[in-house]
């Protein structure tokens, strides 16, 4: 389990993480969402022990990762820009990782080479951006990590490879109880993969929780009336957003779905339908309510 308490990280005068507190349970796929420079990559580097915290504390399995080889050997960190030693090939890099990580497994490595068809003897610098990311992913997964941290994991991967990656991640979580933390600036990428999502903006956590629970009590209702009633009629509902287009009213309502629809039906609409909003819409509604400039976060 990863626990951050009052975690602060500063880069000279800029505060990248501002006293954040969060808990990442074991065996989940945890998404970190935020715009560029929001602090999500910094959080990953703090978890992996690359950075040392300036304030507060971050622990992995109860211990600080910074300067702690035992903890670091359980973590595979895949940065936003893959790095390989100059003139090296995948085989050489695998040898290096094998000599560094006690749980490095050549079986996994060989298996992943069949999934991602890369030439292990070709120079990594000749690889495309997507291939380099695949190579880095092979190395990270081959260390058999308890915690897999991925920064912009899907960046540079085509649709097929994204699907493959998602499957591998799921497989690792299911079979080995691996905890996966994925940082991305694109919430749509994480929607179908993550159990939990944490939105970071300007070093602050502005939303954090399980996807289903977040999505669960927000509903998008589309209602058509022969004569649209006054908005005050809906005062008994927790309407987060309302838009009217002719006789069609779109409402975003927080609450129990059955209770909402029961109330709507009492108004004798021509048509009424409750739609499950996308995760992105949920965040937009939630965050607009609390006054955040959501377009910047989810762009």
């Amino acid at each position: 389990m990863i626990i951050a308490s009052a975690l602060t990280k500063k880069f000279d005068s800029k505060t990248a993480l501002n006293s954040i507190t969060l808990t990442i349970p074991d065996g989940c796929v945890y998404g970190l969402v935020g715009s560029n420079g929001s602090g999500k990559s910094t959080l990953l580097r703090l978890i992996s022990g690359v950075y040392m915290e300036d304030g507060g504390e971050i622990t992995v399995d109860g211990e600080r990762a910074f300067n702690n080889p035992q903890i670091k050997s359980k973590i595979a960190f895949l940065g936003d820009t893959p790095y390989f030693l100059p003139q090296s090939n995948l085989k050489e890099m695998a040898d290096l990782y094998n000599s560094m990580y006690p749980d490095f497994d050549y079986e996994i490595y060989n298996h992943l080479l069949t999934v991602f068809p890369l030439d292990p003897k070709a120079r990594l610098t000749t690889f495309s951006k997507g291939m380099q990311r695949q190579a880095a992913l092979i190395l990270a997964l081959s260390t058999n990590p308890k915690y897999l941290l991925m920064d912009e994991a899907f960046d540079g991967l085509d649709v097929v490879m994204r699907r493959v990656l998602a499957n591998i991640v799921m497989d690792g979580v299911e079979k080995r109880g691996m905890t996966v933390i994925i940082a991305s600036h694109n919430l749509r990428e994480l929607e179908n993969v993550c159990d939990n999502v944490c939105v970071i903006h300007n070093g602050d956590i502005i939303s954090n929780g399980g996807i289903e629970s977040l999505r669960g009590n927000i509903h998008k209702v589309q209602v058509a009336f022969s004569q649209v009633p006054e908005m005050s009629v809906f005062n008994s509902l927790y309407v987060m957003k309302a838009e009217r287009t002719g006789s069609l009213l779109s409402l975003v309502v927080k609450g129990n779905e059955d209770e909402i629809m029961q109330f709507i039906n009492t108004l004798n609409p021509l048509y009424a339908e409750c739609i499950e909003p996308t995760l992105e819409e949920v965040f937009v509604y939630e965050l607009e309510v609390v006054g955040y400039d959501v377009k910047n976060i989810l762009s």
Binding site: R45, N67, S73, I75, G79, M100
Partner: peptide, 18 residues
């Protein structure tokens, strides 16, 4: 002197001294 290489080396299971 490079962020990407610094990330990889500092993430290895070694203390700074090691």
């Amino acid at each position: 002197y490079k962020k990407s290489s610094s990330d990889v080396f500092h993430a290895f299971p070694l203390t700074r001294v090691e």
